[in-house]
Simulated scan of single mutants.
Amino acid sequence: MENDQAVRLEQVSRCYASGSSAAVRALDGITVGFDRTTFTAIMGPSGSGKSTLLQCAAGLDRPDAGRVVVDGVDLGPLGEKALTELRRDRIGFIFQAFNLLGALTAEQNVGLPLRLAGRRPQAAEVRAALTQVGLGERGGHLPSQMSGGQQQRVAIARALIARPKVLFADEPTGALDSSSSRTVLELLRTLVDEQGQTTIMVTHDPVAASYADRVIFLVDGRLTDEMHRPTAQRVAEHMAQLESGAQPVGTDGGR
Rank of each mutant, 00 (worst) to 15 (best):
T173R: 03
A155N: 04
I161Y: 03
D170A: 09
Q150M: 10
R182W: 03
L185E: 05
L167A: 06
Q152M: 12
L176T: 03
A169K: 08
R163T: 10
L160Q: 02
V166S: 06
A155I: 00
E186I: 08
L167V: 10
L187S: 11
A155C: 10
V184W: 01
D170H: 12
R153M: 12
S180Q: 12
Q150S: 15
A175Y: 02
G174L: 08
S178D: 10
P164W: 01
L187Q: 02
L160R: 09
T173E: 09
L176G: 11
D177Y: 06
A175C: 15
L187D: 12
D177I: 05
L167F: 09
R158C: 14
L187T: 07
A159V: 09
I156R: 07
T183L: 12
T183Q: 15
A159W: 05
A155H: 00
A159G: 02
V166H: 10
S179F: 13
V184A: 08
A169R: 06
L187K: 15
L176H: 01
S179K: 13
S181D: 14
D177K: 11
V154M: 05
S180H: 06
S181N: 14
S181G: 12
L160H: 07
A157I: 01
A175V: 07
I161G: 04
R153H: 10
V184M: 00
A175E: 12
R182I: 03
I156W: 03
L187I: 13
D170W: 09
L185S: 00
D177S: 11
T183V: 14
A162R: 13
G174I: 13
L160F: 00
D177E: 07
P164A: 12
S179Q: 15
R153C: 15
E171W: 06
A155W: 00
Q151P: 02
S178W: 06
S179L: 11
L187P: 06
T173Q: 07
A169I: 01
S181C: 09
P172N: 02
G174E: 13
A175L: 13
G174M: 09
E186L: 14
S180L: 14
R163M: 02
V166R: 10
V166L: 00
L187H: 08
I161F: 05
E171C: 13
A159L: 10
I156P: 02
A175N: 15
T173D: 01
A159I: 04
D177M: 04
I161M: 08
T183W: 08
T173Y: 04
R182D: 13
K165Y: 04
V154N: 04
T173F: 06
D177R: 10
V154S: 11
L176W: 01
E186F: 08
A169Y: 02
D177W: 02
S180K: 01
P172Y: 01
S180F: 03
I156E: 00
R163N: 05
A162K: 11
Q151L: 11
A157L: 12
L185R: 00
